[in-house]
Nucleic acid binder design. Structure first.
Lengths: 234, 234
DNA sequence: CGCGAGCTTGACGTTGTTCAACTAGAGTGG
DNA sequence: CCACTCTAGTTGAACAACGTCAAGCTCGCG
């Protein structure tokens, strides 16, 4: 064989979180099958990890990086469903739905992940009901968060939605009151469901009022409680 | 026993669609177990069938009537996720998610349905993987429709959203170009994500332009194609 | 050095919410 | 049988929110 190590491992499967979690439910022989049918890959910022409309033949366990879940409508407009950081299992809503991906997933910064073969995962999950239940929890959880996003879009005005976005990024993605965005203003607007200008206006208003400071991509939250109030009443 | 027929059957289980579908996947002995742990009930217009926040201990197979899936936010505002007519399985998103109902389901006209015990359903589904897969398709399907509603809310203005609502009601609920609403104007506004006045204004504009005619609760669509155009570009 | 992409700002017009007034029908009680 | 009240629906006007536009700015890259 000319290329015995055509795909060098980016990291060791033995210390992988997905293995650790999976092996609470399935035996190591079964995990070996999953491992052998999976592929480790790097994704550059902006690259598609899963494509809306494509066949759902694999999931991705995200090892490193931050991604956006993206919906493209008929008119070519984008809507960001949610932003997720590693470690996380991407595309679980597609496991048990025959056919095509409902949404796209893009890397918003350089990512590393592992493609997991859906037919193999399905086969193993059906023999291990606890494992199956664990996977299903992920699907319902995804549904649940999307439902709350729904409320934000339907009933809050831009103030509140931007506050929601900042709170979400701070608590769930960057896990700090001060962080450097890997998203553009346009992407923020696609997440909040408004125009880019409106994102900018609102952020600079928040800045003026001392709620947070914005300097390019760097955001620092000064008054988290005020932000929560705006989220609630805005 | 004093009341040997305390709960007279509203209809015969042997001709029930849920039985017919289920028995493609499970045997009649298993279905008998489901049947014995289920309860037939009537719901009056306005009554809650499933309550957001309550324990998810049963699903409902809707035999007759129309229901709304309702989200209540912290501020007491409502958002209608979707409207569904019988026959349909309600609450399937809750089957595999431990805990509480994510949304409420209300009867928007008099309904009849059958409460199905979740633990029993789960137990049987885990022994019949084809049946399980069928149920899971319902969960993902629900997710998918909610996602499209999402796009409508995020990117369309009221014109387009009202058009969406009318199209949906006509094609998926009443299945006719002319129908009598069982929803109030307020409920329409909670479905379209706008104010009641805006629903009324928009409907009467549609009326003036000859797209449809409105007379109280009676709606008759004259120009379906135009409605689709408004849905797409509005 | 110049170009282009992303960002920022303010002005303007459109859209949609809120408010207030009015109508119609349904239920209640004298 | 007629006030009355209550609710749902309707209308138009005033106001606020938001998107669009146009212009200028900054930064990175060829």
């Amino acid at each position: 064989m000319i290329y015995p190590e055509k795909r060098p491992k980016l990291y060791n499967c033995d210390t992988c979180l997905f293995k650790i979690i999976s092996c609470q439910y399935i035996n190591s022989e079964e995990f070996k099958k999953l491992q052998d049918s999976s592929i480790q890959l790097r994704f550059k910022k902006g690259e598609a990890i899963l494509k809306q409309g494509a066949n759902a033949s694999y999931l991705v366990f995200l090892q490193k990086g931050i991604v956006k879940f993206n919906l493209e409508d008929e008119m070519g407009k984008n809507l960001i469903l949610t932003i997720t950081k590693s470690p996380s299992l991407l595309g679980s809503a597609n496991i048990f739905y025959e056919g095509i991906n409902i949404f796209s997933v893009y890397a918003v910064e350089d990512c590393e992940g592992c493609l997991i073969d859906i037919p193999m995962l399905k086969q193993i999950a059906l023999l291990n009901t606890d494992f199956l239940m664990k996977l299903l929890e992920l699907v319902s959880g995804m549904f649940k968060t999307s439902v709350f996003n729904f409320i934000s879009l339907a009933h809050k005005q831009v103030n509140g939605r931007i506050a929601d976005v900042i709170i979400y990024l701070s608590t769930s993605v960057y896990q700090s009151l001060s962080f450097t965005l890997s998203l553009s203003r346009k992407e923020l607007s696609e997440f909040a469901g408004c125009s880019t200008e409106n994102v900018i206006h609102t952020l600079s208003r928040f800045h003026k009022e001392g709620i947070l400071s914005v300097e390019g991509k760097k955001i620092e939250i000064h008054d988290f409680e005020r932000l929560q109030k705006i989220s609630k009443f805005g």
